[in-house]
Amino acid sequence: MNIFRLFGDLSHLAAIAILLLKIWKTRSCAGVSGKTQLLFAVCFITRYIDLFLHFVSLYNTEKVMKLIYISASVFTCYLIFFKFKATYDGNHDSMRAEFLIVPAAGLACLINTKFDAIEILWTFSIYLEAVAILPQLFLISKTGEAETITSHYLFAQGSYRALYILNWIYRYHYESHVDTIAIVAGVVQTILYCDFFYLYITKVVKGQKIVLPA
């Protein structure tokens, strides 16, 4: 474990917590893409499938973190699609998730480190996570604005994988550890946030709201 990965995971936890708090406190999921949250839930379940396959003694933090990620993302989907369904902005959350899931699944079968079920699921989860934020960014571009709290969520969510890139550089240099698939997907994922990062740093930090077109 290194500082970059630690802060990356903390940033990821913060993102999940910010979104849950936003929905719970405002009792509304306006401005939140339910499809993105569904895709994240799929990512966690397919990536941490080993938790279900053989019983895990919750002795180490990694197992606990995996359970937190899975339960929090499923609970967020429950809030969006059931509890606060009336506030779900289905008209603007219109990006076809199939256009993300099918290519990720296809690519996972073509480019992977080992052709076995668990590894393919893990690879699918990595590829899907890289594009899972697209419906959320698409929704913001359709509504033309993002609530400040949602911007903080996106900043934390985007920072997590950006910090992981620093973690991979660190591990390459000090542990000569390389996980090419995760690195390439992580770079693509972070690049998708660049436009938002620019808006966040030039606007939200100054207390303004993000309104598109910028």
């Binding site: 550890h177 390389v178 996980d179």
Partner: peptide
């Protein structure tokens, strides 16, 4: 560098 056998990251 060696490709990691087990994925040890979240």
């Amino acid at each position: 560098p060696h490709a990691s056998k087990k994925h040890d990251e979240l």
